[in-house]
Design a protein around this nucleic acid. Structure first.
Lengths: 256, 256
DNA sequence: CGAGTACTTGAACAGTGTCAAGCTTAGTGG
DNA sequence: CCACTAAGCTTGACACTGTTCAAGTACTCG
């Protein structure tokens, strides 16, 4: 059962310690749940959160139809969420990075409505939902933070919908890259040089484009010197011009 | 100040009584907040809810940039929400009917990020947000119902995003009409004959189509005998065939 | 090292968008 | 109550963006 530790986890605490500690977690300043909690409060949160779980690349965190019991905070790694139709077609509804919360769309029916799949080896904190509701009743700051996170997901989706219905391919790709760049920057990574974790097809599904169009658009932006693409390795050489492409679009900017 | 009562409000309690009563409201069985609460509990909710407010057609309930203080439950009427970009372009992000909750996307920043505009003379219940959070801490059922409503908004947006990125014009219009039909039916109206409250342009903005395409598609569906359109008056003559149009699409069905 | 997956690029095509003109309806004021 | 006006709607012709189909290349991972 004991598997050879993956390089990615070298800096992570030993998984044999059953509890992670929100109070000590360096994600607190992101949009994760403990953000804004005082010492004692985040220890209470520690108590309800289950041990970290590792999910390997390609594995499912949950599937559409699974009963809903917990939310999941992404500790390290990268996920996509996927809606599937009866006809087998799939649609990517989101990409999730460190500190973000998965499973919010399942509360309404007590059933997961989409699939969450790791795009790289990842580590998550499981947050039993009933316990979280209980704790929210005790800690107003936690309650408020939780509501903010849900609200933010709604606002973000509204922006994405505006994007999907009013932008052309160049603009969509530009918004997508800028958004990734900002999210990497917040997390302390370079905003102008990073690895794409998803395929062209997944980007296309998310943005409402075919993979060929994604590929062509990236090539075109590269020809114009705005970005550099080598497979999954991306460099944003001219962020101002990238923003200009979005700027000439008519849709509202995607925040976050 | 006393205005001539509008016909629509003939059956509604006199507005001089400052408090509406969730406990007596016939929207309880919809997805409104008091759904699932017991008698005493919904009286507590009554106490925090401000008097009903009437909003005339074309008026704003709130504007982008307004400070966020309250959520609004739609008592009667019809609203649209609108994102506006700096360049003046606007995008419809949702249509809201009786019993639905407006303003959820504003919690995250304490500022309204979109405009809410009445598409017909409407009546809303104002729910001060801080008081609601307080009450949610006291009444677990209310807390859970509130979370479900937010979660449902997220799930609905994910479905709409899938729709926007993978369906053609026929399919989008079909989904849109079926969705309206279901929402009317739940509210006790005919699911196969109703008035559109929004313009072709607003439908187009919502679905990511130009108004000409909306018009053409409606005409085409009428030529095929699937629907009847006379300006804003709609009849769904052949619901099965309408559903078939969506069925052959690859995207997940839009629930609710 | 080999097989499968992901990616790039080209050419033809289809579906929407754009522009324009004319029509209908609802709302306003005389 | 009617006439007028502005807004909303319909329809046509054409352009253009993105899709589809296809072929070939380059990675990645076991």
């Amino acid at each position: 059962m004991q598997q050879k530790a993956h390089k990615l986890f070298a800096t992570i605490v030993d998984a044999r310690f059953p509890k992670p500690a929100c109070s000590a977690c360096d994600l607190r300043d992101l949009w994760c749940l403990p953000s804004g909690l005082k010492g004692q409060q985040s220890k209470q949160l520690d108590n309800i959160i289950n041990r970290r779980k590792r999910i390997k690349r390609g594995e499912y965190l949950y599937r559409s139809g699974d009963p809903f019991r917990s939310l999941f905070a992404l500790r390290t790694g990268f996920f996509k969420t996927l809606l599937s139709s009866e006809s087998g077609q799939e649609h990517v509804t989101g990409f999730y990075m460190t500190g973000e919360l998965l499973g919010l769309d399942a509360i309404c029916d007590d059933i997961h409505s989409c699939n969450a799949i790791a795009l790289e080896d990842s580590e998550i904190c499981e947050i039993p939902y009933t316990a979280l509701e209980g704790l929210c009743r005790e800690i107003p700051e936690l309650q408020h933070q939780f509501h903010k996170i849900m609200s933010r997901e709604i606002a973000r989706d509204h922006n994405l919908m505006a994007l999907l219905s009013s932008m052309n391919a160049d603009e969509r790709i530009a918004v997508f890259l800028i958004n990734l760049s900002q999210r990497f920057e917040v997390r302390g990574y370079s905003p102008v040089e990073f690895q794409l974790r998803m395929t062209r097809g997944e980007i296309g599904s998310y943005l409402g484009l075919k993979l060929e169009t994604v590929s062509r658009t990236l090539s075109k932006l590269q020809d114009e010197g705005i970005i550099g693409v080598q497979h999954k390795h991306l460099t944003l050489n001219d962020l101002p011009r990238l923003k200009q492409i979005v700027g000439r679009a008519r849709a509202p900017l995607c925040k976050d």
